[in-house]
Amino acid sequence: MAKHIASLGGDAYVIPTGSHGRQIHYHPHIYSHQELRALFDAADAIQFSPYGGQRQLIIPVMFRMIYCLGLRPGEARRLHRNDVDFEHGSVLIRESKGHKDRMVFMSPDLHQYCRHYDAAIDSFHPDRISFFPNHHGHFYSKGTPDRWFHELLDAAGSVIVASPGSPPRPYDLRHAHVIEVINRGVRAGRSPEALVAYLSLHLGHSDTEDTWYYFHLAADFHPELRGIANASIESLFPEAHHEIR
């Protein structure tokens, strides 16, 4: 509009090219174990709907994969059937953020859980391409996991308490996964430097600074980790930073 006014000879300020708008900083909801239990119990209680495909089979598996593997919700939604290798227990994430592929591995429990799901959904969509097929056998739309997630939140009721201005999102399950990995690793004596290098590959980050963000989210820092979290990542392990980039 400003350009149009200026073209007519009016006095208008045109925002310079490359200027960024105001960024809204979202504070992720960090789920407690009790909240996660309530969320997955709600997923397991989902009922069949004639408009949602085999949602009673899909919802429990999709959200468990997001949490257990640290997937972005869109990565789970876009999984192809042949991306999940039941022989080796691996999951290929195609064309992730930054157009990079990566491989993640299922725990034995998740591996078996997904195997049961695959056999069950196969009876409805034997020739499907999508791992999570809609009622037509195709991929679900982008907004579907969000709608399902809000249904789970409603079913979980007062167990999940949201912070003002930061309602829980499906993406926060990825945050919960990473924080659990960090805390478990530090308690087991793994060095934070090694954890960052591993998580960068596991999460599909092209820059370890993106991974470092999760260390600041961890609620129960190990004393050593708390000190390192305020340091510069490049000064701690420049070799790993250069190699992963």
Rank of each mutant, 00 (worst) to 15 (best):
T208E: 03
L69A: 00
M1L: 14
R174Y: 07
L92I: 08
I46E: 13
H125Q: 09
I66R: 00
G53R: 08
V181E: 02
D220Y: 14
G21K: 05
E180F: 08
G18D: 10
P145V: 02
T144V: 14
M65G: 04
G74H: 10
D118G: 05
G137C: 11
Y26L: 12
L36P: 01
Y140V: 04
E224I: 12
S90W: 15
V84E: 07
I182Q: 01
K142R: 15
S107E: 10
A194P: 00
Y198E: 09
A120I: 06
W148H: 07
H138M: 13
W148Y: 08
I59Y: 11
E193L: 08
H216A: 10
E75L: 06
D83L: 10
Y140C: 02
I15K: 07
G98D: 01
A188G: 03
A219V: 07
H99G: 01
S235E: 14
Y213S: 00
G89W: 08
G10T: 09
S206H: 13
G137E: 11
A76M: 06
A176I: 06
H216E: 10
N183W: 07
H136F: 15
H125P: 04
G52K: 15
P60G: 07
I59Q: 11
D127I: 11
A2H: 14
H99Q: 15
H33I: 13
A2I: 11
G165M: 09
L71Q: 03
I129C: 07
H136I: 14
G52V: 10
A194E: 14
V61R: 06
I228F: 04
G18C: 10
H111D: 08
L199M: 09
A155C: 08
E151H: 13
I129L: 13
G204A: 05
R64E: 03
W148D: 07
Y171T: 02
G52L: 15
R226I: 03
R64Q: 06
M1C: 12
V159C: 05
L203M: 12
D118M: 12
I24Q: 15
Y13E: 00
F132N: 04
I93E: 03
E180I: 04
R78A: 03
I24K: 15
A219L: 12
D220G: 09
D122W: 08
A155M: 10
P28C: 08
R169C: 06
G70L: 13
D11Y: 15
F63S: 03
Y171S: 02
R190P: 00
E193T: 01
I59D: 10
I179V: 13
F86S: 09
E87T: 14
G185R: 03
H138D: 13
D127A: 15
R64D: 01
A45Q: 14
P50A: 12
Y13I: 01
T208I: 11
H202F: 10
R128T: 05
E95V: 09
Y67V: 00
K3D: 12
L203K: 05
H80Q: 09
P170V: 04
D210A: 13
H175Q: 05
F86C: 11
I182G: 04
L203I: 03
L203Y: 07
I58F: 11
H116S: 13
V178N: 01
E209N: 12
H216T: 06
A188Y: 04
I59M: 12
I129V: 14
H116W: 13
E209L: 09
A156Y: 06
F139E: 03
R72P: 00
L79N: 02
L69I: 06
Y51D: 13
D101Y: 10
P223N: 03
S107L: 09
N183E: 14
I93L: 11
